[in-house]
Structures are given as structure tokens and as C-alpha cells.
Simulated scan of single mutants.
Amino acid sequence: MNERLLFVLTFASALGSGLIAGLFFAFSAFVMTALGRIPPHQGMAAMQSINVTILNSLFSFVFIGTALASAALAIVSYFRWGEAGTIYLLAGSLLYLLVFLVTVAFNVPLNDTLAAAKPGSAAGADIWARYLVRWTAWNHVRTAASIAALASFIIALRLRG
């Protein structure tokens, strides 16, 4: 891979990680708390709407595009081991891929369970209460990992500079 393409992929991965980190941070810092403070059927309905809307937005492009770029950078890191910044390039890539895997393995199945529940029902209220705790805990993991990925990509860019 030529240096220009490597720079572009690393820069794009840093931007994508930063955008995702900001989004996940907002959910961890205040969105989920706010949704948990309103009546359960309203919070649940709002989150169901967010989950549908987010899939049809620029989020999907950034989220998946950053995962693809990170996977490519992880592979490139293997072949450029020993070069300046490669350890940070690999770390950023693996951290962002962790974000992707946590999302697929934990947050998406929780979203699917929530989507099938009926707001206002007793079962829905129970699902919502468990969802708030579990989804938010996994979102904290995604937030920390995406911030760490961003920092790693920035350091890689600086060292490769």
C-alpha cells in the first residue's frame, strides 16, 4: 500500500472513530439517563425510534466504513511491522474493530429485543428496565474503545508524519 493511501485510510479511521466516539459518548453521558427518567413507555418508544432511524442514516456509512478501513489497516500493520507508528496503527484498528464486535454481539441483539417489545405493556417495561442497564454498560465499552482508537490513530499519524 502506498504512503498516500495509508495516510488517507488512517485519517479516515481517525475521523470515523472520533465521530462514533462522540455519538456513543452522548448516549453514555446523558441520552440514556434522560430516556430512563421519562415514563418507561415513552423512553422505550423513543429508543425504538432512534434504533430505526440510525440504521437509515449517515451513521451506517461511517460506522461500517470505519470498520472496513480499520480491518485494512490491521492487515497493513502486519506487513509494515517495525515502521514508525505501526503499533499505534494496529492498536487503533483493533480497538475500533472491538467497537464493531461489541455492537454486533451485544448492542444489536438488545436493540432487536427492544424492537419486538410493546411500549406500555408490563413485559415492555421489564424489557426496558433491563435494556437500559445492559445496553448502557456495553455502550460505555464502545465509548472507551472508540476514544482509545481515535487517540491511537492520531498518534500513528503523528509518528508516521
Rank of each mutant, 00 (worst) to 15 (best):
residue 131 Y to G: 10
residue 124 G to W: 07
residue 15 L to A: 14
residue 129 A to H: 15
residue 58 L to A: 14
residue 83 E to M: 05
residue 85 G to L: 06
residue 4 R to G: 08
residue 117 A to I: 03
residue 31 V to P: 08
residue 141 V to M: 05
residue 112 D to F: 03
residue 122 A to F: 06
residue 130 R to Y: 06
residue 107 N to C: 09
residue 71 A to T: 14
residue 111 N to T: 06
residue 125 A to L: 06
residue 47 M to Q: 09
residue 86 T to L: 07
residue 1 M to P: 07
residue 61 F to E: 02
residue 90 L to K: 07
residue 25 F to A: 15
residue 143 T to M: 02
residue 50 I to T: 07
residue 148 A to Q: 03
residue 127 I to A: 12
residue 85 G to C: 08
residue 101 L to Q: 09
residue 93 S to N: 13
residue 21 A to I: 07
residue 98 L to K: 01
residue 20 I to G: 00
residue 95 L to D: 00
residue 120 G to N: 00
residue 63 F to Q: 00
residue 17 S to E: 02
residue 100 F to E: 00
residue 94 L to Q: 08
residue 92 G to I: 11
residue 132 L to D: 03
residue 125 A to E: 15
residue 63 F to Y: 12
residue 66 T to S: 07
residue 105 A to C: 01
residue 53 T to M: 15
residue 71 A to D: 06
residue 76 V to S: 09
residue 99 V to C: 15
residue 12 A to V: 05
residue 109 P to I: 02
residue 101 L to D: 06
residue 125 A to C: 06
residue 75 I to H: 05
residue 101 L to V: 14
residue 65 G to N: 09
residue 102 V to E: 05
residue 111 N to E: 01
residue 87 I to Q: 08
residue 96 Y to D: 00
residue 63 F to M: 02
residue 142 R to T: 04
residue 31 V to R: 07
residue 139 N to D: 15
